[in-house]
Simulated assay, not measured.
Amino acid sequence: MLFHARMRVRLPHDLDQDTADRLKELERQQAQELQRDGRWRHLWRVAGEYANISVFDVGSPDELHRLISQLPLFPYMDVEVTPLARHPSAISDDAAFDEPGS
Rank of each mutant, 00 (worst) to 15 (best):
F3L: 08
H4G: 06
H4I: 01
A5F: 01
M7P: 00
R8T: 14
V9M: 05
R10T: 13
L11D: 00
H13Q: 10
H13L: 11
D14F: 08
D16T: 07
D16W: 09
D18I: 06
D18G: 09
T19V: 15
T19R: 13
T19S: 09
A20G: 04
D21V: 05
D21M: 06
D21F: 04
E27S: 10
E27V: 06
Q29M: 09
Q30I: 05
A31Y: 02
A31M: 11
Q32D: 10
E33G: 07
E33H: 12
E33L: 12
L34R: 14
Q35E: 12
Q35H: 15
D37N: 13
G38N: 02
W40F: 12
R41M: 06
R41S: 10
H42P: 00
L43I: 03
L43A: 14
W44T: 10
W44G: 13
R45E: 13
A47W: 10
E49I: 06
A51V: 08
I53G: 01
V55R: 01
D57M: 04
V58S: 00
G59D: 14
S60I: 04
P61Q: 09
E63M: 00
E63P: 03
L67D: 01
I68W: 03
I68A: 05
S69Y: 04
S69A: 14
Q70K: 01
L71M: 15
L71F: 11
P72S: 13
L73C: 10
F74G: 00
F74K: 00
P75W: 09
Y76W: 09
M77C: 15
M77W: 04
D78P: 02
D78M: 03
E80V: 12
E80H: 13
V81M: 07
T82N: 10
T82I: 14
T82A: 13
L84K: 07
L84N: 06
L84Y: 04
R86Y: 10
H87M: 11
H87D: 15
S89Y: 15
S89I: 05
I91D: 08
S92H: 05
S92C: 06
D94H: 04
A95G: 05
A95E: 14
F97T: 12
F97Q: 11
D98I: 12
E99W: 10
P100T: 08
G101P: 02
G101T: 09
